[in-house]
Simulated scan of single mutants.
Amino acid sequence: MKLYGKEYDRRTLARMAGDVAAAGGVRSVVLADGSERGVRTLEFRTAAGLAFDVLVDRAMDIGPARYRGVGFGWESATGYRNPGLHEYADENGLSWLRSFSGLVVTAGLDHTLFTADVDAANYRYPHRSTVWNGLHGRVANIPARLSGYGERWDGDRCVLWAEGEVRQAAIFGEHLRLVRRIEADLDGTEIRLTDTVRNAGFDRTPHMYLYHINIGWPLLDEGARFVAPIRETLWASDSDTEQGASNLVFDGPRPGFVEQVYEHDLLPDEHGRVRAGLVNDRLGLTFEVEYNSAEFPAFFQWMHLREGAYAVGFEPSTNAVAGEPAAREAGTLTFLEPGEERAYHTALRILET
């Protein structure tokens, strides 16, 4: 490993410091104030300057993220609200927006995108013929059962890691389990997410999945650029033409800006991987997401340049922007059979450019 400009193996690092924490590591803390009170958090820190928080009680999503003191994970006014305060059906299903903050907010496990009332005959419960789903589903406000965390040596390479399980279950309803593993090299600037979603129940169950990956100031700033291998833009919200803001070179914050959303068809490389990035030339930094196009066949760009809530989002998704009712009608909605699982492999990295 290259730490602070010198090469170190496990032994030479041990000679310099009695604990890996001198270079980096994972620390468990509990947030203790305001609406965040009681949220278990794992603080990751690498010797290369990458620091990010894993919110154990928020589905192990990623909250604040910084590189050498420069923030790139979006931090909204909601903070990282304790999931005990969440009311799923409040505000006609838009209550998800009251806890919407951080670098990664997961949507799913059986529903993503806008609210929908859908057929529930697969659960064979005559008193509930349909299931009503709020914006982006339930998973982001479910605490994980933490399996473990810490530093793991693989030869002379040290990997920081955490793993946990999130259960989304109901009697006469779905029983889906998400196992999430997060890794970062001690000398690295990359976050690796490996997610496995399994139908742990005995009924055929719908499955939709989406990452809301949110970049905020100061990495997002006037003149920052969106860079991706766009083969075709399949859909854009009406606000795109009404506001005239470019989705390739970003403006600064605007009063009253209405979100602009795009669905892009992105070209994968020869290995089926897709990369999309946000470049800040002034800071000399790029944030990049890399994912598997077979796992996430759709990609959305969310642009919210409103003052006070200034953010841009990258959203790899299992389904198109039209949402669950359209996917059911088109026959493209995934159903997991009992015991069946799907895996997702995604990397988030910060690069000096």
Rank of each mutant, 00 (worst) to 15 (best):
I62S: 04
I62F: 08
G63S: 11
A65W: 08
R66S: 12
Y67I: 06
R68Q: 10
R68V: 01
G71T: 05
G71E: 14
F72L: 06
W74M: 06
W74K: 09
W74F: 15
G79V: 05
G79P: 14
Y80T: 00
R81H: 06
N82E: 09
N82Q: 11
P83H: 07
G84F: 05
L85K: 03
L85M: 08
E87P: 00
E87F: 06
D90Q: 12
D90K: 15
N92D: 14
G93P: 03
L94T: 14
S95Q: 04
W96Y: 13
L97N: 08
R98F: 03
R98E: 05
R98P: 00
S99D: 08
F100G: 00
S101A: 11
S101N: 12
G102A: 08
G102V: 14
L103V: 01
L103Y: 14
V104D: 03
T106K: 08
T106L: 02
H111G: 06
L113I: 06
F114A: 05
F114M: 06
T115G: 05
V118E: 14
A121C: 07
Y123P: 06
Y125Q: 10
P126F: 01
R128P: 02
S129G: 09
T130W: 04
V131K: 13
W132N: 01
N133K: 10
G134P: 02
G134H: 02
L135A: 02
G137S: 09
G137A: 09
N141I: 03
I142P: 01
P143Y: 07
P143E: 01
A144S: 14
A144D: 11
R145N: 09
R145A: 09
R145H: 11
R145E: 15
L146M: 08
S147I: 05
Y149D: 02
Y149P: 02
Y149L: 01
G150Q: 13
G150R: 14
E151I: 13
R152W: 10
R152D: 05
G155Y: 13
G155I: 12
D156A: 02
V159K: 08
L160T: 05
L160F: 03
W161G: 01
A162N: 04
G164K: 05
G164I: 07
R167S: 08
R167Y: 06
A169N: 07
A169M: 10
I171Y: 04
I171D: 03
G173M: 12
E174I: 00
L178D: 11
